[in-house]
Write a protein that binds this DNA or RNA. Sequence first.
DNA 1: TAAACGTGGTG
DNA 2: TCACCAAGTTT
Length: 363
Amino acid sequence: MPDASRFSSLLLDWFRQAKRPLPWRDGYDPYQVWLSEVMLQQTQMDRAVEYFNRFLARFPDVHSLARASEEEVLRLWEGLGYYGRARNLLKAARAIVDVHGGAVPSSAAELSALPGVGAYTTGAVLSIAYGQDMAAVDANVERVLARVFDIALSPKAPEGRRRFAGLALSLIPQGQARDFNQALMELGALVCTPRDPACPRCPLASICLALAKDTVDLRPALPPGKPVVPIGMGTAVILHEGLIYVQKRLPGGVWGGLWEFPGGQIEPGEEPEQAALREVREETGFVVRSLGKLAVIKHSYTRYRVTMHAYLTGFPEGAAPCEPVLTAASSFRWLPLAKLEGLAFPTAMRKLAEAIARDPRLA
DNA sequence: TAAACGTGGTG
DNA sequence: TCACCAAGTTT
């Protein structure tokens, strides 16, 4: 069994020369550390840094964030995905200001009570921002530990979770969790990667059990993948007197709180165009007719592969839109093309908005 | 507890 | 091309 002090000294020596210069790494301001950790959830470093810088420029501290509207936060978050993170971030910022006097909590109980802050983020903020000796076990840490200690247990199973958390905590050198936790994640991201790990230049190669036993590719144990589901969707861009109809999705579920053009899944035996018109009727009560195809947009999210067929639609000659009866949205707007820029859209809808802008029928 | 929740990069 | 994957949390 690799020795804990050997493990940490090899790792920390490596980290001193390999650590990337990240914006929140000068000063480790708790607000910045918290923000970065939420953005990094299931997100790659380069992307998170880009959004972090834009976010921090607009919301330099927790007070400015707490005062923001959800609309604006979602617009800044657009493209980053998992929008529940953005909605929870705003709720948490308001709780930090209203309940904690503007200071990011420094206790596990208070921190993990904030929306969007789970076990990992609690440990990450306490160790990285406040220097407390807490473990922060993410997928990088699981992978590094599974290999160095050649652990066959799945990190996703309850028993595995306990094992990895206990091991991670036991390895922290007194008072050095800030660097140690970051070093472990950095190693997982840069060297001990999921595929083709760079074992020859790994600082832990000399003590890595999986490397010695040639089980590196078997660690960590992965759960079986789930089947990919293809989905066809019909979507309608409703045009009336130069204005375009958009609606705001309900708070929960996919793309909660983001704006969209009405539409939905194509039923068996149905043409995409019929689906678009039917969905408009179901979601708004509007009876519209098609003015022709606008775009076909492919995108994927989680395990779904969506092909979205978008149509330009309008009201029959002489008919005017009534007040919509919303069944899939919390609000709606009629906007000129130029105003779509300011709304938070899911990526597929943003692509459609861009396709509209290029369409000669609207230009 | 397992499923839902986004998106872009990668080999 | 396409399955896999990323500094997870919530319900």
